[in-house]
């Protein structure tokens, strides 16, 4: 049985968290450390939404090979998100199209949304973290 103080730590409202990924997976550490936040956050059983836009769409591109830059390829971790019940993944349409990509190029199933739909989704959120 959980002690009362342990119970307290887990109690609290479920809030709508959105993580907006806007940068390329390599070149800066934002994408990797964003993913680390999402994975930890999953343990808190909040309502989690992920958005990939701008160069952030490259984070979930298939067949990443980082051998030549000597950096760990962390893209397989995105496939683990489903196991953490993180299933609301959105990609902004124009970001994908302008980079010559389609959903076929992505390693995880996503919903494609346009800017207006994304704005509506953002309106619904309580906490938005942009990386």
């Amino acid at each position: 049985m959980a002690e009362p103080w342990e119970d307290d730590e887990l109690e609290g409202p479920v809030r709508k968290f959105m993580y907006v990924n806007r940068r390329a997976p390599y070149g800066t550490i934002y994408a990797l450390e964003s993913l680390e936040v999402v994975l930890i956050a999953a343990a808190f059983e909040q309502d989690v939404t992920l958005v990939f836009m701008d160069d952030g769409v490259y984070q979930i591109k298939k067949e990443q090979n980082t051998e030549a830059i000597g950096v760990k390829n962390f893209s397989p971790t995105y496939r683990a998100l489903e196991g953490y019940d993180v299933e609301k993944l959105y990609v902004e349409r124009e970001s994908l199209q302008s980079r010559g990509l389609t959903v076929e190029d992505l390693i995880v199933p996503v919903q494609i949304v346009d800017k207006d739909q994304l704005a509506e989704l953002m309106e619904e959120q309580e906490v938005i973290l942009s990386f």
């Binding site: 809030r15 930890i40 808190f44 909040q46 309580e126 973290l129």
Partner: peptide, 14 residues
């Protein structure tokens, strides 16, 4: 990082 998530849950604004 749990402390960041907790801050998001407990605060009116982050």
């Amino acid at each position: 990082l749990g402390q960041l998530i907790e801050a998001g849950i407990q605060s009116d604004r982050l």
